[in-house]
Design a protein around this nucleic acid. Structure first.
Ligand code: MN
Ligand code: MN
Length: 555
DNA sequence: CCGCGGTGGG
DNA sequence: TTCACACAGTCCT
DNA sequence: GACTGTGTGTCTCCCACCGCGGGA
């Protein structure tokens, strides 16, 4: 399997960013060429045939925030004057010179004093105060004259030109096809080249790619725009009518369901409960099932809610969701006068403790200080220690070149890390790592990887929390059998079981024992996933308990 | 005048 | 800028 | 007791710079 990881451009090259952009574009053309239209391929060819300096300026704009720029802020030491380059780009249709601007767009381009000049031109006799806030100037202009005009119209003597980028959709599509997401961007190249981010090298063959059908890319992009429109507060019914149909792969369909769920919640907040219910009803996503039951509980007869909750319990395996549905079932049964078997709820071992709580110090720190007086070493680690140890032990499985899991050089984990098939796709590797907990090899493995893999990005590792001291302490005082039980439980559902681990891990070096403590201050209570972990610990004989802290009565 | 949040850049 | 956690306010029994 | 919404840190690099807005 040829390793075709592209080298980031040499940063001594003044056009290093253009070189990186070409790497990305060519990568997508080679692997995803069949997912691009003839028009898109033609535009990329046009880009190639532009003079190098014009290409570079375009990439500078693509990498910057927004789609509107002023020519005086496009001056780069490594490039010639922007205007002639911009004209080349405009001739090729990549940018638009002097575009029509809304008032908001105008304001994003101008600084406050320039914006005041615009006001002054509109009404020289009664301009607003120069002390007005920028946003007030915007509203002032809107009230006086709202209409999109070009910068030439708004402020002819501005002293610079406005330019808009006309290739964002294509560039966003390329970015998505390369990274498989839209939160990583071009800066990944330079940040990696600088050594600020490290990534595990995973062999990629030329068939590795994030998408396999153009319609999948389209769906991802459509969902993303709808998501943004939802966040911006657009009318919910507009978004509802544009919801795309079912996705072709489970992970895309899951993204669609998450958006449907978010839209349903927005309807709920807006008081449009029937719209919300319709959305939830079509949505098999766990969260949606629960919200639907909650709405039924509020709106329907308790008998109906009881039946629906009972049916959901048959279908849903995820323990946290089951816990919430179970409570709904119990409540509606009581309301409907249905008698059901009382739930078995294990009692969680709880200790009450009075401590002097300082205002500027967390309650967890107070407990750590208290334990220190008893010669016990405690760390506030929450999820970060066990998930980190898990990742160190199972590293070869996590970063195994499973087909489809890795498709670009900047991944902090496989694409399917939180998907149900993760375990099955790597079973042999996982078993080999687990076996080390039985043969005893795990200690050396984990310590070696802690050193070897230091600072390599991994979704399950928070490096600052994973100090050698803590790892050593864990490997010394936590029995292998306990680690195994914890890891097997995490493996069942990495997405949900990486949350809810107790606040503190405590090491008693005299007694050579350890324990886990979930700290609860006054007015804080166990969350469902925290309770589930504590139940798991108790069932496995792992020492874990809740410390309920009260303010110490002074005198 | 200065703190800040946002942005650009390697 | 998401995500996990804590915390505060509300309703209900 | 349970549900809900909100606040907080944040550890997706890290430094320099700029404009805004407010109060030293
Ligand atoms: Mn905590
Ligand atoms: Mn806690």
């Amino acid at each position: 399997m040829p390793n075709v990881i592209p080298a980031g451009a040499d940063l001594n090259d003044p056009l290093y960013y253009l070189s990186n952009a070409r790497t990305l574009i060519n990568w997508v053309r080679e692997r995803h060429g069949d997912l691009l239209t003839q028009t898109e391929l033609y535009r990329l060819d046009c880009f190639d045939s532009l003079p190098e300096q014009a290409q570079a300026l375009l990439i500078r704009m693509v990498m910057r925030r927004g789609e509107l720029f002023r020519s005086d802020q496009l001056q780069y030491a490594e490039l010639s004057a922007p205007l002639p380059l911009l004209r080349l780009l405009a001739d090729a249709g990549f940018v638009l010179l002097d575009p029509a601007l809304t008032v908001e767009e105008l304001a994003s381009l101008l600084c406050k004093s320039e914006l005041w000049q615009v006001c002054h031109r509109l009404n020289p006799d009664a301009p607003p105060s120069k002390q007005s806030r920028k946003h007030d100037l915007v509203t002032w202009i809107t009230q006086t004259d709202h209409g999109a005009r070009t910068l030439e119209d708004w402020l002819p003597d501005a002293g610079f030109d406005a330019v808009s980028l006309e290739v964002s959709p294509l560039m966003q599509r390329l970015q998505l096809m390369f990274f498989g997401n839209l939160h990583q961007d071009w800066s990944a190249f330079v940040v990696t080249e600088l050594g600020h981010q490290l990534y595990e090298p995973v062999p990629l063959d030329s068939a590795s790619r994030a998408f396999h059908q153009r319609s999948d890319v389209d769906l991802y992009l459509a969902l993303h725009t709808l998501q943004q429109r939802l966040e911006q507060g657009e009318p919910l019914n507009d978004i509802l009518t544009e919801l795309p149909a079912c996705g072709s792969t489970p992970w895309l369909e899951n993204r669609r369901r998450k958006l449907m769920f978010a839209l349903g919640q927005a309807f709920e907040r807006a008081g449009q409960l029937s719209q919300a219910r319709t959305l939830y009803a079509q949505n098999p996503h766990r969260e949606a099932r629960i919200r639907q039951l909650r709405l039924m509980e509020r709106m329907d007869l308790p008998e109906a809610t009881f039946e629906a909750a009972s049916a959901s319990l048959e279908a849903i395996q995820q323990p946290e969701a089951r816990l919430r549905i179970h409570r709904i079932r119990v409540r509606s049964a009581r309301k409907a006068g249905i008698s059901i078997e009382p739930p078995r709820q294990p009692v969680i071992s709880t200790h009450r403790l009075s401590l002097p709580l300082e205002a500027n110090e967390s309650v967890e720190q107070a407990v750590i200080a208290h334990l220190a007086t008893q010669g016990i070493q405690a760390f506030h680690v929450e999820n970060r220690l066990f998930t980190g140890l898990f990742a160190l032990l199972y590293w070869p499985a996590i970063f195994a070149p499973v087909p489809g899991a890795f498709f670009h050089p900047f991944q902090a984990g496989p694409a399917d890390l939180y998907r149900p098939e993760f375990q099955a796709s790597r079973q042999a590797l996982i078993d080999a790592c687990t076996a080390q907990l039985e043969t005893g090899g795990y200690r050396a493995t984990i310590l070696a990887r802690l050193a070897q893999k230091q600072n390599i990005r991994c979704h399950l590792i928070h490096w600052p929390s994973l100090t050698e001291e803590r790892v050593n302490a864990c490997l010394t005082l936590v029995p292998a059998e306990h680690l195994k039980q914890v890891f097997l439980h995490m493996m069942k559902d990495l997405r949900y079981h990486r949350r809810g681990l107790p606040d503190l891990i405590c090491f008693d070096w005299q007694a050579r024992r350890y324990q886990l403590i979930e700290v609860k201050g006054p007015g804080d209570r166990l969350q469902d996933h925290q309770r589930l972990w504590l139940e798991c610990f108790q069932a496995q004989g792992i020492p874990a308990s809740v410390y309920q802290i009260q303010h110490e009565q002074t005198e």
